[in-house]
């Protein structure tokens, strides 16, 4: 049994998700089998590959657990156009304590859907909500225009960048920061980090809305620095109404 208030086991939940992914059952049927939704939030974490999202996520999961919330993660990776296969490789850093029924992690391949989210992501999120998870995290790769899709499902969006090889410039071009509620500069001990930081702060100022000023968090995820600050920022954004503040014209 999960301790998430849901009524099904981890095994059953995993199978339900497969069934939804393969269109074997409808999402409403899956949800009713999964249980009854608790109060939940969806957090999108986005940023280019290699920026350190998974390390960040691993620490964030631990932090959410430490503040007594259950966490489900969907990590989305691209399907190879050539073979139809996919490598869902970042799992290791998202493994916290095993035997902790309050964490559920599932990798999903895009299976032919261009962009960051699979066609089934929203449906799988619904199932996880019904299973009683409180914090639902969707991790996506890529900096494409379609990444903006995250915003449609998320109550809070975290954009992660780094000072390495012009990540930040690409993300600006793609409009990723425009959808961000919190910006993270990971690897902030790299050369050139100060310049990027200045740019990001300037960029964040332009995003302020209805009393929410978008914070830019300095992070060195590999050394566990900046994680608590991130978690607190997410929490205070959600406490102020989350996705309902300001920018959600895209939503719905």
């Amino acid at each position: 049994m999960t301790d998430t208030g849901g009524k099904i086991s981890t095994l059953e939940l995993a199978r339900l998700i497969t069934a939804v992914e393969n269109s074997e059952i409808t999402v409403s049927e899956a949800c009713s089998r999964a249980g009854k939704a608790e109060n939940s939030f969806v957090i999108g974490i986005t940023g280019p590959p290699g920026v350190g999202k998974s390390t960040l996520l691993n620490h964030l999961i631990r932090d959410f657990r430490a503040t007594n919330r259950t966490v489900a993660v969907i990590a989305v990776d691209p399907t190879s156009i050539l073979s139809g296969g996919a490598l869902l490789g970042d799992r290791i850093r998202m493994q916290t304590n095993t035997g902790d029924r309050g964490v559920f992690i599932r990798s999903m391949a895009t299976r032919g859907h261009l962009g960051g989210l699979t066609g089934k992501t929203t449906e799988v999120l619904e199932v996880l909500k019904s299973a009683g998870f409180e914090m639902l995290i969707v991790e996506t790769v890529g900096v494409g225009q379609t990444e903006v899709e995250v915003v449609r499902v998320a109550d809070a969006v975290v954009a992660v960048t780094s000072p390495a090889h012009g990540d930040e410039i690409q993300m600006m071009k793609a409009g990723i920061f425009e959808i961000a509620d919190v910006i993270v500069l990971n690897k902030s001990d790299y050369k050139g980090a100060e310049n990027v930081m200045r740019d990001l702060i300037r960029c964040a100022e332009g995003l302020n809305r209805n009393g929410w000023s978008v914070p830019v968090i300095r992070m060195i995820a590999a050394e566990q620095q900046g994680i608590t600050e991130l978690r607190e920022s997410i929490d205070s954004f959600l406490a102020q109404g989350g996705g309902s503040i300001g920018k959600r014209s895209l939503k719905g």
Partner: peptide, 30 residues
């Protein structure tokens, strides 16, 4: 990589996994 090239979805766990971690991954990832 070869399994991916053969069209499968591959979850790679990384090194140093305990038996519990491996089993849990298999369950959750179905």
């Amino acid at each position: 990589r070869a399994l991916k090239d053969a069209g499968m979805e591959v979850i790679y766990t990384g090194i140093r996994q305990t038996p519990e971690q491996v089993a849990e991954t298999c369950i959750q990832e179905d």
